[in-house]
Write a protein that binds this DNA or RNA. Structure first.
Length: 487
RNA sequence: GCCCGCAUCGUCUAACGGUUAGGACAUCACCCUUUCAAGGUGGAAACCAGGGUUCGAUUCCCUGUGCGGGUACCA
């Protein structure tokens, strides 16, 4: 895209409800917001929308913090950080919403309602049956005095927005102009009977008070935007810009959700993915950098990102792409840094890992792969895989024994410090046996690792040392010819 | 039912009316090679359909179709 980069600082927010672990879909939206703020030198605000008592999850907010922090999506204002508009947790702002709700009543933009769920349901069924949009019939609008008495006596009621006539329209940052006929829009509940606000009231009040300039949220909010616009108008406030970013779909093409088996984002951490790779992969869902290079650092993305370039169609998340991106990020790491990361991952001294880094760096997709690859080196004895053929395909028992013995005597004579020399000498043996290197060296792999694949085997010997290598070769030989049968 | 959004290779995407429709992942073949990888080269693979507008539509408009989202005292 050739348009100019947006440079006006944007104040944006991510406002999750702490009802469970964040998944990739949620976080991708958070990422776009964060990027919009960082790319424009603006502010990223975190706000917890916990107005639904029914869905309260103990510690849900902590998971949100941990997820964002792991990814490095730092917030300028919000819980645990504070800011000029604190508190940033909606349950602690309850009185505020009540106050603004009453202002709406006073101005005639909202009214109280005591309709029962049963009546509302019957009403909607009837409307649907007649082919009409389902919306509240304003049955209670003419009963305000009656309801006032009811409330004065301690009775409960909900507050509803009185949706104005006419049209609602806005120029969406990612979609262009969107229009709704207000006749289609329901008189939404603003304050619930338990006194808590609904999303619609809380989000508008907070976004205005917190001076949010761009509301970046998932496209599932498009249909309720007219309600929010009506609220801004009712309060006499200028609405922010809206950017409805596409949702992230699962392999089934349905919106990613917990109940659809979406992985928790933090699970990617325990599976051995790098934060930078996750960010790279998520950024590519609905946005793409100029040029052909799609492996990007977080800094690269911040430099290139513009919320105006986000496009409108939903994206299916492909785990294989993440794998490829993660692998590339691992390969791009300076060896010392990878040693450091793997040190933490394997709970080992990074310094001691350094010689092993060249052997694993090109070979792993996730950090966890390094555990698998290196475990034969770290374990004291060889753990043989269940279905490992030994001697392997195309090699006879005699040939395998010859090879193992040649290897053992060479190691005894020359040690293991010279992998290249060892390999060269052993290649002669392989040739004299009339074997393909491919088949023959598999014998050595199995002998040392208990499996036919792994890191380069002669380098592994150097790490194992002369003694351990010799011991493993002997043990492998005994698998072929038990000691009791040896002549 | 009603409303809204979306529509390029299997997937993520590029293209701002004129291109042999480009890249990445995945996939296939070959090369390299001590296993496995990595890397290199090459291949197969897409403009949802029908109408317009235009000298010219993947691109703009309309309709249809498909997919998705919303229709709660959840967000």
């Amino acid at each position: 895209m050739a348009h100019s980069h947006t440079t006006t600082p944007m104040r944006v927010r991510f406002a999750p409800s702490p009802t469970g672990a964040l998944h990739l879909g949620n976080v991708r939206t958070a990422l776009f917001s964060w990027l919009a703020a960082r790319a424009t030198g603006g502010d990223f605000i975190l706000r917890i929308e916990d107005t639904d008592q029914e869905r309260y999850v103990e510690g849900g907010d902590l998971t949100v913090f941990e997820t964002l922090r792991w990814l490095g999506l730092d917030w300028d204002e919000g819980p645990e950080v504070g800011g000029p508009h604190a508190p940033y947790v909606q349950s602690q702002r309850k009185a505020l919403y009540t106050e603004y709700g009453e202002k709406l009543v006073a101005a005639g933009h909202a009214y109280w309602c005591t309709c029962t769920p049963d009546r509302l349901e019957a009403m909607r069924l009837e409307q649907q049956h007649r082919g009409q949009p389902t919306r509240y019939d304003r049955h209670c609008l003419s009963r305000q005095d009656e309801i006032a008495t009811h409330r004065a006596a301690g009775g409960t009621a909900v507050l509803r927005l009185r949706m104005p006539e006419g049209m609602s329209a806005w120029d969406d940052v990612v979609r262009g102009r969107i229009e709704f006929s207000n006749a289609e829009i329901d008189d939404s509940v603003l304050l619930k009977s338990d006194g808590f606000p609904t999303y619609h009231l809380a989000v508008v009040v907070d976004d205005h008070l917190m001076e949010i300039t761009h509301v970046i949220r998932s496209e599932e909010w498009i249909p309720s935007t007219p309600k929010h616009l009506a609220l801004y108008a009712a309060f006499g406030w200028t609405p922010p810009a809206f950017a409805h970013v596409p949702i992230v779909l699962g392999p089934d093409k349905k919106k990613l959700s917990k109940r659809h088996g979406a992985k928790r984002l933090l699970d990617y951490r325990s599976d051995g993915y790098l934060p930078a790779a996750l960010i790279n992969a998520m950024a590519l869902l609905g946005w793409s950098p100029p040029g052909d290079e799609d492996i990007l650092s977080v800094d690269d993305i911040v430099k290139l990102f513009d919320i105006h370039d986000v496009h409108a169609s939903p994206a299916v998340f492909d785990p294989q792409r993440l794998d490829a991106i993660n692998a590339r990020h691992i390969r791009l790491l300076p060896p010392a840094e990878l040693a450091h990361i793997l040190g933490a991952w394997l709970d080992r001294d990074p310094e001691s890992l350094l010689p092993l880094i060249p052997l694993v760096q090109e070979r792993i997709t996730t950090l966890e792969d390094a555990s698998t690859l290196l475990s034969p080196i770290f374990s004291t004895a060889v753990i043989w895989g269940d279905d490992v053929a030994f001697p392997p395909k195309n090699v006879t028992v005699d040939q395998a024994i010859t090879l193992l013995d040649a290897c053992r005597s060479d190691v005894a004579a020359n040690g293991t410090a010279d992998p290249t020399g060892l390999r060269t000498r052993l290649t002669e043996t392989v040739t004299s046996l009339g074997l393909k290197p491919r088949d023959a060296f598999r014998v050595i792999y199995c002998a040392l690792f208990g499996q036919p694949t792994g890191i380069p085997v002669f380098d592994a010997m150097a790490v194992l040392g002369q003694e351990a290598t010799a011991a493993r070769l002997v043990a492998a030989r005994e698998r072929l010819v038990p000691a009791s049968e040896q002549v």
